[in-house]
Amino acid sequence: MIILSGKAGGIIILRRFIKVISPLLLLPSLAMAAYPDAVQVLVDEGLKVEASFDAPGGLKGFVGRRNGHSISLYLMPDGEHVVIGKMVDGFGQDLSAEHLRNWLPKPDLTGAWQELADSAWVSEGPSDAKRIVYVFSDPNCGYCVVFREKAQPFLERGIELRHIMVGIIQPSSLAKAASVLGAEDPVKKLEFHDSQFPRDWLESEENVPQDLRRLVQSNNQLMESLFVAATPSVFYKDRDGAIRKIVGLPDDSALSEAVFRDPE
């Protein structure tokens, strides 16, 4: 047994200690990579993986969201390749839709109502309404025009509709949305764009004032954070006060029985 003391001994022990721990210094990057490389690449690009599971065919399944879209992906048995998209069985059944239903958690909308209230919106209906409905609306969205038309009779019953203006569909969308938010009479400006649809309004977004640009971009980001990727997307409260959402144009029964039901 050799015992070293003093400075020399300390240096030798330190060197041996460094040799032992130096391989461990490489581990954090490996340990922090929560997914195989083929999946991690997508995570680095913005995919939020929310669940993994054993999929048919010996594959490893993952479900998550990116830019408001729900996504299913499947890791091949070699662990090095990923297939993104729909999985079907021999009967033509959409297994991916089932995987999304079973494994993808519902978004937590607990704080969404205040976020919606704090966004940049245009109001139709009574300002003292007992019931409020929010809708993300793009001026280049034909279904948004239809939704607004269908909403008008309900507003006369004491319901306020707040249009959260976004610009996501066409290059002119941002400029159109900004023009509504910045107009002296926003509802009249919204009506103008509705009357012009589907003709393109050749207004460059380069001419949009920075304050209005930021408002529209903030609305775009809010829409993405609430995991909605299409317009119109409607948010309302059910009879128990829970926040509900419908992505896309609601059918007539949903409009009358849920979204625009009579104020209580």
Rank of each mutant, 00 (worst) to 15 (best):
W103L: 07
W103V: 00
L104F: 05
P105A: 09
K106S: 14
K106I: 10
P107E: 05
P107Y: 07
P107R: 01
D108M: 02
D108V: 07
D108S: 06
L109G: 02
L109R: 04
T110S: 13
G111M: 09
G111R: 09
G111Q: 12
A112Y: 10
A112E: 05
A112Q: 06
Q114G: 02
Q114D: 14
Q114W: 01
E115W: 02
E115D: 10
L116G: 06
L116F: 05
A117Y: 07
A117R: 13
A117E: 15
D118C: 01
D118M: 03
D118S: 12
S119H: 11
S119F: 08
S119L: 05
S119E: 08
A120T: 08
W121R: 02
W121H: 08
W121N: 04
V122C: 07
V122S: 07
V122K: 02
S123D: 13
S123N: 10
S123F: 03
E124N: 06
E124K: 04
E124W: 03
E124P: 00
G125L: 11
G125V: 13
P126V: 09
P126N: 11
P126R: 10
S127L: 14
D128C: 09
A129H: 07
A129K: 06
A129V: 05
K130I: 00
K130Q: 15
R131S: 02
R131L: 03
R131F: 04
R131N: 03
I132Y: 10
I132T: 15
V133D: 09
V133E: 08
V133S: 08
V133N: 11
Y134G: 05
Y134W: 12
Y134A: 03
Y134D: 05
V135M: 12
V135K: 00
V135F: 01
F136Q: 05
S137K: 05
S137Y: 09
D138I: 12
D138V: 12
D138H: 10
D138L: 09
D138T: 13
P139I: 05
P139H: 03
P139S: 06
P139R: 04
N140W: 05
N140Y: 09
N140V: 04
C141G: 14
C141H: 06
C141T: 12
C141Q: 06
G142D: 03
G142F: 09
Y143W: 14
V145L: 13
V145Y: 12
V146H: 08
V146A: 13
F147A: 13
R148C: 06
R148D: 15
R148V: 10
E149K: 15
E149P: 02
E149V: 14
K150V: 11
K150T: 11
A151P: 08
A151F: 04
A151T: 12
A151Y: 01
Q152D: 11
Q152A: 14
Q152N: 04
Q152S: 10
P153Q: 07
F154Q: 00
F154D: 01
F154M: 01
L155Q: 03
E156I: 01
E156Y: 00
E156Q: 12
E156W: 00
R157Q: 15
R157K: 15
R157Y: 00
G158F: 02
G158A: 03
G158D: 03
G158W: 03
G158P: 09
I159R: 00
E160N: 08
E160R: 11
L161M: 13
L161R: 01
L161Y: 08
L161A: 06
R162M: 02
R162L: 01
H163T: 13
H163Y: 14
H163E: 13
H163N: 13
I164C: 07
M165F: 06
M165W: 04
V166K: 02
V166P: 11
